[in-house]
Amino acid sequence: MEANTDRIDSFRALALQVTCHAVNQARDRTEARSLMQQTIKRLGQQIAASIAFIGFDCRLIVLPEYFLTGFPMGESLASWAQKACLEMAGAEYEALGQIAQKNQIFLAGNAYEIDRNFPGLYFQTCFVLDPSGSIVLRYRRLNSMFAPTPHDVWDKYLDCYGLDGVFPVAKTAIGNLAALASEEILYPEVARCLALRGAEIFLHSTSEVYGKERSPKEAAKISRAVENMAYIVSANTAGIANIPIPIASADGGSKIIDYRGIVLAETGSGESMAAFAEIDLEALRRYRRRPGLNNLLSRQRLELYAESYRQSHFYPANTMLEGEVDRKHFIQTQRETIERLAKLGII
């Protein structure tokens, strides 16, 4: 993607913590789409009010994981795709784009999405809409326990989108944006591959347990910021409504972390716009260009690790090239991987 020369060096970002209203109980696609549009209407009001409070230099808003739909709970791949997955140029993106355009913001979020190149499947997709309402970044989650990923159709996905489509970085007026989905904060390789392509701000849409004690994900957020010398804007759900799981199971802790690993803003539980902070790109870029012990990016010796990765084969690629499979496929593939690695003495 071409760099945007109309640069904004300092602005405010918001990790907007909102309740996810799940569509699992919707009777059909029409009802599910109606629920999504209600969510979008509600978000439009919340975003406008949040900007009015924070200030009109709020140029980036990140929404939680699967904020329009919740996650599948037993639905087959085909059923979830039909009910809950967005089309790549569908009405939901258009409506969200209108919010971005009206408020002159970059709007990031996460949704389930179908792709005509891969019939029978869907991908969990992180997206960024720019102030014109256009999608400037589309990242498909690469590590998922119970959903298809580009790695499951690896050869064909590379043919369609190339490696830069697997690890996209959008060079925008508010910096180089990249996305991480939910638990992918625990996979340092994903963030590092994006940093190698210039990522300065990681947009982390998540839906996770939050508590007083620091969880592995909380530790990982600090680590990803420090080791990649990048901002992290992490938006969690304020609970998930309309499913059997208690609503507040994934609620709270949206935050913004700077390139030194310092938490600039954090909110508790419930719907909140309290997790906002200044993004100072000039300071980040000075920090990245300053020689010294803390400049971890410039000290990377990538050749040391390349051969070990090349020789290692853990979770297999291309296991879903034939399209839809039974949901048992995911756990069965993991079991087979664990057995193989155990026989090799790796785990």
Rank of each mutant, 00 (worst) to 15 (best):
E324P: 11
A191M: 08
K343T: 04
R29T: 15
Q311I: 00
R224V: 13
I243W: 01
K255L: 10
D326I: 04
I222S: 01
R286D: 10
S215R: 05
G90P: 14
G345M: 06
E87G: 11
A178P: 02
T30V: 15
V18A: 02
E278Y: 00
V226S: 00
N228T: 04
I243C: 04
A22Q: 12
G252Q: 03
S234A: 12
E87D: 14
M36V: 14
L77P: 02
L16N: 05
Q37P: 13
S205Y: 02
F106H: 14
T19V: 12
R192M: 13
T19K: 12
A95F: 03
I135F: 08
R310W: 08
G253I: 03
E266W: 02
N24V: 07
S34H: 15
D251G: 01
C160R: 11
C58W: 09
S269D: 00
T5Y: 05
L96Y: 06
E65H: 11
H329C: 14
G90E: 09
A191G: 05
M1E: 14
G175C: 14
S205D: 07
K217E: 07
A170H: 12
I279Q: 03
C20F: 01
T125V: 12
E213N: 07
I174H: 02
G261W: 01
E282W: 05
A195N: 07
C126V: 03
M320T: 05
G175Q: 07
A199P: 00
E213T: 05
G133V: 09
R260P: 00
D155C: 02
A235Y: 06
R42L: 11
Y139W: 02
I51K: 08
E303K: 09
Q45H: 09
S207R: 09
Q300Y: 05
S249A: 09
M320Q: 14
I331Q: 13
P244R: 02
A250N: 08
N4K: 10
A178Y: 01
A95N: 07
R290Y: 03
T206Y: 02
A108N: 11
D326A: 15
Y259A: 10
D280F: 01
S207H: 08
P72I: 05
N228P: 00
V233T: 10
S79E: 13
K217H: 06
M229Q: 09
V325A: 11
N295I: 04
D57N: 15
M73R: 03
N228H: 00
Q334N: 13
N117E: 15
A108M: 09
G165D: 08
A265I: 04
K212Q: 04
S308C: 06
I114N: 09
L129H: 02
P291M: 04
E278M: 02
F314E: 07
Y66C: 11
D152S: 05
D57W: 06
Q82D: 15
A317Q: 05
A178T: 03
E278Q: 06
A3V: 10
I243V: 12
L293E: 11
R286K: 12
I331R: 15
I135M: 15
A3Q: 08
F123L: 13
A225C: 12
H21P: 06
Y93W: 09
Q101G: 01
V128G: 01
A111P: 09
A317H: 06
G175M: 14
